[in-house]
Amino acid sequence: MAAGGDHGSPDSYRSPLASRYASPEMCFVFSDRYKFRTWRQLWLWLAEAEQTLGLPITDEQIQEMKSNLENIDFKMAAEEEKRLRHDVMAHVHTFGHCCPKAAGIIHLGATSCYVGDNTDLIILRNALDLLLPKLARVISRLADFAKERASLPTLGFTHFQPAQLTTVGKRCCLWIQDLCMDLQNLKRVRDDLRFRGVKGTTGTQASFLQLFEGDDHKVEQLDKMVTEKAGFKRAFIITGQTYTRKVDIEVLSVLASLGASVHKICTDIRLLANLKEMEEPFEKQQIGSSAMPYKRNPMRSERCCSLARHLMTLVMDPLQTASVQWFERTLDDSANRRICLAEAFLTADTILNTLQNISEGLVVYPKVIERRIRQELPFMATENIIMAMVKAGGSRQDCHEKIRVLSQQAASVVKQEGGDNDLIERIQVDAYFSPIHSQLDHLLDPSSFTGRASQQVQRFLEEEVYPLLKPYESVMKVKAELCL
C-alpha cells in the first residue's frame, strides 16, 4: 500500500493539533497551500530580480507567473513527485505547466533550498508574528487579574506546605514575570531571523556568478533584492546548502521555554482548584465526569500541561538535527523538520489560546482563602504575639514557653481530632496574655502579614508589564474561544 493518505478522510490519521486544537490561522501558515504558494512567490521574486539585473526574462513571463501564483494543481504535483521522487522539481514542473512561456526560467540558477529553506524562514517569521500578540493578550488578562487582587491576602506555599502570606495578585505576578520573559525572547528570536537568500547549491553562489558572467556586484544585488522582497532586513552571508540548523534550535528553545512557563502556571491553577481557592472557567453544560456528576475538573489547565510537556520535548529534535548536518548538509534534517517545526508552533498556539481562555474567566473564592488563612495564621502570628507581650512588660522566655504549650495543644486538636485551630481562643482565655487581649485582632490582621506584596504588584505592572504590552494595544480586544 502506498504511503500517505487522504487526510480529510475519517479513515486516515490526522494530527489532533490540526484537527482538534490549533487555530485556523496557525494551521494555514503550515498548510501545503501556504507552503507551495510561497515557493511560487519566491520563484517570481527571483525572476523579477534577475530581470532587473539584466537576464533575458520578459515582462510577459513575469506576468504569467504572477497570474498563476494561486493556480496550484495539487493532484498534478503529487503525481509528479511520485514520478520524480523530488518535491521541488515536482512543483517546478507543475508551475511550468500553467506558465508555459515562463517554464524555462522558473528556478533559474537556484537549488531546492532556495524555495525550501527560504519558505521555512518566512513561515517561522509569520508563525512567530501570530504567537506574539496571543502571548501579549494572556499577559494582559493576567495583569488585569493581578491588579484587581493585588491586596487580597492568601496563604503562600513553599514545598506545598503553608508559608508566609502573600497576595493573590502577587502570586499571579510570578506567572506574568515568566511570560514577559517569554514574550521578550519570542520577539528577540523573531527579529534575529535572517533570510537564507540566493546562495546556490553549497552556499557559494557559483551558479549565479556564472549567470551574471562573473559580476560579483550583481550577485550581491540579486541576494539583497530577493531578501528585501521577502520582507527581511538581512540575509546570511555564510550558508551551506541550507541555512544553519542552529536557527531551528533557537526558535524551538524559546517555544519550549514558553511551554515550561505555561505548565507551571496551569499546575498552580490545578492545585488551587483542589484547594477550592480558584477555578478555571466551567461552562453551564460542561460535564466533569461521566460517573461523578459533582466533579469540576480543571480540564483546560490539564490540557495545557499535557501539550506543554510535548512542546518542551520537541527542542531535542533540532538539537540532534543540527549535530548531524555533515559538511554542507545531509538530508537527516528533512523529514524531522517537516514534523517538529509545525508541531512546535501548533502546540504553542494551542496552549496560548487555551491559557487566554482560562485567564479571561478565572474565578476566585475569597471566603475559602480566608478560612485557610484562619487555619494557619495563628501559628504564624506567634512571633508577633511574643513581641507584643514583651512590649507590655512580659518575659520573652516565659511567653515563648506559654505559646509553645498552647500551640501544641491547638495542633493536637487540628491533627488528632480534625478540629479547627483554636490557638487564639486559648490565648484569649489565658490570664497571662490579658495585657494584649485587646491587640489580638490587630495582630491577626492578614494584611499585616503580606509585606509589600501589593506595592510590588503595582510597581511591576507599571514599570515592566504595561510598557512591554504597549506595541500590542491594537490587538488586545480579541477574545479566545474554545470549541473543545
Rank of each mutant, 00 (worst) to 15 (best):
V262Y: 04
R149E: 10
L271E: 02
N274P: 04
A2I: 13
Y432D: 04
E228G: 06
T111R: 04
E25Y: 06
C99W: 05
C27Y: 09
I386A: 06
S434A: 13
E148Y: 05
K75Y: 03
V115N: 09
P378N: 00
I139M: 08
V262F: 06
E81P: 08
V405K: 06
E228C: 13
E220R: 10
I72R: 04
E228L: 05
N274H: 15
L362N: 14
Q458H: 13
V168C: 02
I436V: 08
I123P: 04
A480L: 13
M89P: 01
R125K: 15
K415W: 02
K470G: 13
A411F: 00
S447Q: 12
G288V: 01
L272G: 15
P56Q: 01
A273F: 15
Q221I: 08
I122N: 07
L311C: 00
R371S: 05
N421R: 05
L209G: 09
F379I: 05
Q409C: 10
C98R: 11
A322I: 15
S67H: 05
T330P: 01
T330S: 12
A143S: 08
H437S: 11
F28G: 02
S261L: 04
G169A: 03
M292K: 04
A381R: 05
K246R: 07
A49P: 06
I237M: 10
A344E: 04
A410W: 03
L443F: 07
Q63H: 05
S289V: 01
P467L: 13
P56L: 09
I237N: 10
G231R: 08
R14M: 14
Q177K: 08
L124H: 14
S454R: 13
I265K: 07
S306T: 03
P467F: 03
P467H: 03
V92T: 14
G394R: 06
R404M: 09
V414I: 11
A163L: 12
G8L: 12
S323N: 00
T267M: 15
I249P: 05
D11W: 14
N336W: 02
F95S: 05
L484D: 09
S257M: 09
I57F: 05
Q375D: 03
E328T: 00
M380A: 02
I139L: 11
L174E: 14
S207I: 12
E277R: 05
D120R: 11
K479I: 13
V405F: 11
S67D: 04
H107F: 04
G203Y: 00
C305F: 01
P366M: 05
R33A: 03
A49V: 10
K295M: 06
E81S: 09
E60M: 02
T167C: 07
V429N: 13
S395V: 04
M380C: 02
S434V: 10
S67T: 05
T158K: 03
S261N: 01
T154P: 01
Y114M: 07
I369Q: 05
Q375G: 04
R459L: 13
S412G: 14
L130T: 13
L46C: 07
C173N: 00
E425Y: 13
D398E: 06
R374K: 15
Q241M: 08
Y21R: 00
L186T: 13
L179C: 11
R452C: 13
A342T: 12
L130S: 13
F212C: 11
D223S: 03
A110Y: 00
A322E: 11
E283I: 15
T267G: 10
L186Y: 10
G394V: 04
Q458A: 13
I386W: 04
C399T: 13
L311V: 07
M65R: 04
A388S: 08
S207N: 00
E64Q: 14
G169C: 02
D317V: 10
H86V: 00
E425F: 10
L468H: 14
L355W: 13
L44G: 04
V247G: 14
G418R: 07
R338H: 00
Y365A: 06
R141A: 13
K134C: 07
S257H: 09
Q210F: 02
Q210V: 07
R337T: 03
N118C: 06
V363M: 14
L331M: 01
C340V: 14
A78N: 14
C173S: 12
L444T: 10
K35T: 02
M316I: 08
F282N: 15
Q221N: 14
A47M: 10
T154M: 07
L108T: 10
W43R: 02
A388C: 06
L423S: 06
T166P: 12
I249Y: 15
Q408N: 15
G214A: 14
V368L: 03
G197C: 14
E464V: 12
V226S: 01
D73R: 06
G156R: 03
L444S: 07
P467T: 12
G104C: 08
K199I: 00
